[in-house]
Computed example of a mutant assay.
Amino acid sequence: MPSRASSGVARTLLGALTLLLVVGGCNDGAGSAPPAERPLPEVTFVEIQPEVITADDILPGRVSALRIAEVRPQVGGIIQKRLFEEGDLVDEGQPLYQIDPAPFRADVASARAVRDRAKANLELAEIRAKRMRSVTGTGAVSELDIESAETGLALAKAELAQAQAALDRAALNLRYATIRAPIAGRISISQITEGALVTMNDPQPLTRIQQIDQVFIDIKQPIARYEELRRAFEDGSILRDDALPVSLFSVSGEPYPEEGRLLFADISVDSSTNELTLRVLADNTEARLLPGMFVRARIAYGEQRNVILIPQQAVRREPSLGDHVMVIEEGDTVGVRAIQYGRVVNRRYVILSGLKPGERVIVEGHDRLTPGVKVSAKPFDLPPQVKE
Rank of each mutant, 00 (worst) to 15 (best):
F233V: 03
S142P: 09
E228V: 02
F233S: 02
P222D: 09
D202N: 12
M200V: 15
A224G: 08
I212H: 01
A129M: 07
L153F: 09
K220E: 11
P205S: 07
L206F: 05
A171T: 04
I217Y: 03
I179T: 02
K157G: 13
V141D: 01
Q221L: 14
S142E: 00
L124H: 09
Q221P: 03
P182K: 05
L229D: 13
F233R: 01
Q191T: 13
L197K: 04
A158W: 04
I219R: 01
Q221K: 08
G236W: 11
T199E: 05
D168R: 06
Q164M: 10
E150I: 04
K157V: 06
Q164D: 15
N173G: 02
A154Q: 12
A196V: 09
A170N: 01
N201L: 15
L229W: 08
K157E: 14
L144D: 09
K130E: 14
M132R: 14
A149M: 05
L155V: 13
K157Q: 13
Y226V: 15
S134F: 00
Q162W: 00
A140L: 11
F216R: 03
I179V: 14
A170Q: 00
D168E: 06
A158P: 01
A177V: 00
Y176W: 03
R133N: 12
R133W: 04
S148L: 09
R169S: 15
G185E: 02
I189Q: 10
K220L: 15
T151G: 08
T136C: 04
A181H: 05
E234P: 09
T178S: 08
I127R: 05
A163T: 04
T138F: 07
S148T: 12
S188A: 13
